[in-house]
């Protein structure tokens, strides 16, 4: 179930659109925040609150890369490896995360502190290589800098 605050937030979101279906993407974001990932319960709650069939909600949700369909770590490391980042060393950073933290692309550390998602361009090409940790941008990455950044996330 959604918290009362989340229900209220969803009602406000709903008012921005002429129909309930258009509120589906933002509703899935709210659900992901509330449940931690888009579990079957999360889909059921969104479906009931918006009056959108469950199969449609799930079909739409699974199309998009930023909705999570398994439990994730407390912090999401989103590292770009597309061309501009790749030619400036992003692959070395993927190896570093694997060797230093046991963090594989698509995987989560054993202590559930970090999950790693490989991104397809995050619009920070001029300061490559770059990543997002949760909602925070980090640019001009090196192995040492990543180590320093990740210490801030518990």
């Amino acid at each position: 179930m959604f918290s009362e605050a989340a229900k209220k937030e969803l009602q406000e979101i709903r008012l921005r659109y002429p129909n309930a279906r258009a509120a589906l993407l933002p509703a899935l974001y709210v659900a992901q925040r509330e449940f931690g990932w888009l579990s079957p319960d999360a889909y059921e709650t969104v479906s009931d609150l918006l009056g959108v069939p469950k199969a449609i909600a799930r079909g739409v949700g699974t199309f998009y890369a930023m909705y999570k369909h398994k439990p994730a770590g407390r912090n999401i490391v989103q590292l770009c490896t597309n061309v501009s980042c790749m030619i400036l060393g992003a692959e070395r950073l993927v190896d570093f995360l694997k060797n230093k933290y046991g963090l594989e692309p698509g995987g989560t550390t054993q202590d559930e502190r970090f999950s790693l998602v490989i991104m397809e361009c995050i619009g920070a090409c001029g300061t490559a290589p770059a990543m997002l940790v949760n909602d925070d941008f980090y640019e001009n990455l090196t192995e040492n800098y990543i180590e320093e950044i990740l210490q801030r996330y518990k």
Partner: peptide, 20 residues
Amino acid sequence: QGAGAYICGEETALIESLEG
């Protein structure tokens, strides 16, 4: 807010996505 799909930069895909 989109949810991580490059194709939504194509205008009719963007419209589909906005419609949920």
